[in-house]
Design a protein around this nucleic acid. Structure first.
Lengths: 148, 148
DNA sequence: TTAAAATAGGATAAAAAAGGTCTTAAATGT
DNA sequence: ACATTTAAGACCTTTTTTATCCTATTTTAA
């Protein structure tokens, strides 16, 4: 099934939340979990994983929490998804060249290869800066509507 | 996880196999299963489902088996995938408009909407005729290489 | 030194995926 | 009529993945 896991979904929302913070400002799991409406204990584990992979830095103790290690414009949707789910692989035959013994005769193989490329390229083009900005614009529009 | 299920994979291979047959020529599960290297019992079940959904017609008894109800050029990869897995839905928020209460403020939503459109459009463009032809060309090239 | 916060990891429960088995029903040739 | 062939249908098992929760431990600022 072609469906994003909750793990990746939550991680994306978490990173997006951090994208709004000033550089260096830490943010605790509870704040993120509450704001994004996700289970705190689960999110904590996901952020541990993001920390090990270098996307966020963690600080323990009072006033601790997480910060991004890169600027939002340098983090792509693809990276966060692959951090949580492993490399995107639309079909087993793409695990590595030669995994499927029929690679060179199978007419479906090149189709999956191309689909993979397009999908990944698109996701690679989506940065958290873009998304954060889009969010601000949307929030403004909503405000306008309400006051109008 | 963004991965094609075995069910869909096997169904695709099965339909592809039928695409090489002359119109009206039936082909049994065992032949398909053997040729494509997939578990016969499982494939049988998948073909039952394809029959119910109108992609193939079945004939019981001696010389029975399956035929395609449409010509390969009129069957797309997308159709077969969706027949086996249900509608492609890259993220829960795309289940239907309004499913996610944050649709109109969430900056990730439009990204998934676009990714979905691109993915589906590509798969919709892939017909079994194309794939069958590609297969023949590949087989020829292999032959040339061997005799050269 | 104590309270706040992340870390590490296991436990688990539910769902989906992958596959098998066995019986019934229909078509066909003899 | 009957045996044979082949799909249909119902049910079941195993494995894997997903999504959680929970508890003990470490770190650190006040």
């Amino acid at each position: 099934m072609f469906r994003l896991s909750k793990a990746a979904e939550y991680a994306i929302r978490g990173v997006l939340h951090l994208s709004f913070k000033a550089e260096g400002e830490t943010c605790g799991i509870d704040e993120i979990a509450k704001a994004q409406g996700v289970p705190p204990a689960y999110l904590a584990k996901l952020f541990q994983s993001l920390a090990r992979k270098g996307f966020v830095r963690s600080f323990r103790g009072v006033e601790g929490g997480f910060i991004l290690t890169k600027r939002p414009k340098d983090i792509t949707l693809l990276e966060i998804i692959e951090a949580m789910e492993g490399r995107i692989c639309l079909n087993d035959c793409l695990i590595y060249a030669g995994y499927c013994p029929k690679d060179d005769v199978c007419p479906v193989h090149p189709v999956w290869k191309e689909a993979h490329k397009r999908f990944v390229d698109y996701l690679k083009g989506c940065t958290f800066e873009e998304m954060a900005n889009a969010s601000k614009v949307k929030a403004m529009r909503t405000k306008e509507k309400i006051s109008a």
